[in-house]
């Protein structure tokens, strides 16, 4: 295992921030840690990296116990933090070179690595810029470049795409996949389920300091009793007809608001046919029809009773 965390507990006075937190990440995985704001994602990472003290538990990285002085472990770790951690007084090139020099002593090798990181993050046109002159997306890319320049075996990314535009976000996610293809294990935390679903091989859902579910995205979605969600444009629907719809086999939940009928069906196939059949039989006029499979947000909602993004 690249990361093995057992029964990690951290308290701030009476407040339990990490409550018997367990995690295992294998080599070559992109492991997603998904949870709302305040669930303990960043705290768990800081404890794993021995930046924060913890009250109980054990952290092993690369099958070795992690301590603040584990320099042999640290040389194989790269970190991309939530906040942009670069020097304002150094240019893009100088920042990447500086942080690389903390890991790589050989001048030639370092030069190669820096240029490779610049290419990887598409910062070639901005090497002489100071951070103050960069846009949000570029700063994030610089932040990533500083974290991965030394080609670490494990990269920990703590919400690296916060406040980034969709195009830049896409570029970052593609870059992460590329990194993983080169053999890097990645632990990726976020509260954006779309990102997690897009790139992660395995996912853990976290809430209130503990993992509440983990597995691949299919395994997680299979944990809940929800099937597809059907959305229809319906111009007029009486209350009785809505009540009858709810009683149809396979329908778990139905709601009608602002000409939109939303139906959540149970797990299984052919949920759409009986509903369409009923609408036709009942002479209910409808327009567009959409169906979508359950998301991780649905998984989270089912398990905790709350949305991923409405908390904190």
């Amino acid at each position: 295992m690249v990361i093995k965390v057992e029964n990690l507990v951290k308290r701030y006075g009476e407040l339990v921030v990490l409550d018997h937190f367990n995690l295992e990440v294998g080599e070559g995985e992109i492991f997603g840690l998904l949870g709302p704001n305040g669930s303990g994602k960043s705290t768990s990472i800081h404890c794993m990296l021995s930046l924060l003290t913890y009250d109980k538990g054990e952290v092993m990285l690369f099958d070795k116990k992690m301590t603040p002085k584990s320099y042999d472990i640290k040389k194989d770790i790269g970190i991309v933090m939530q906040n942009v951690a670069v020097f304002e007084e150094l240019t893009v090139y100088e920042n990447i070179d500086y942080f690389c020099s903390l890991y790589v002593k050989d001048k030639e090798r370092r030069k190669e690595l820096v240029e490779s990181a610049i290419d990887f993050c598409a910062l070639n046109s901005f090497v002489k810029f100071y951070p103050a002159k960069l846009s949000g997306g570029l700063l994030r890319r610089l932040n990533i470049a500083c974290g991965i320049v030394h080609k670490p075996k494990l990269v920990i990314m703590d919400e690296p795409t916060v406040a980034v535009d969709p195009q830049s976000r896409n570029n970052i996610l593609e870059g992460i996949k590329k990194l993983n293809k080169e053999g890097t294990t990645i632990l990726y935390t976020s509260h954006y389920m779309e990102e997690i679903e897009q790139i992660c091989t395995r996912i853990a859902i976290m809430d209130r300091g503990r993992i509440i579910a983990k597995g691949t995205k299919e395994e997680l979605k299979a944990m809940i009793g929800l099937g597809e969600k059907i959305t229809m444009e319906v111009y007029q629907l009486e209350r009785e007809k809505l009540e009858e719809l709810k009683k149809l086999p396979g329908v778990k939940m139905a709601s009608y608001d602002g000409n939109i009928l939303t139906i959540k069906s149970e797990k299984g196939r052919n949920n759409l046919s009986p509903i369409l059949h009923y609408m036709e039989e009942g002479n209910v006029v409808f327009g567009k029809v959409y169906t979508e499979m359950p998301t991780l947000n649905d998984v989270f909602l089912e398990m905790t009773g709350k949305e991923l993004r409405d908390n904190g």
């Binding site: 990296l49 930046l51 603040p68 320099y71 042999d72 640290k74 040389k75 770790i77 970190i79 933090m81 906040n83 942009v84 951690a85 670069v86 020097f87 942080f99 903390l102 890991y103 500083c146 974290g147």
Partner: peptide
């Protein structure tokens, strides 16, 4: 480490 993000990054490096 508890004073700036750059310091966190520095702390996580293998440089003593």
């Amino acid at each position: 480490g508890n004073q700036s993000d750059v310091a966190v990054r520095n702390s996580l490096s293998p440089m003593p």
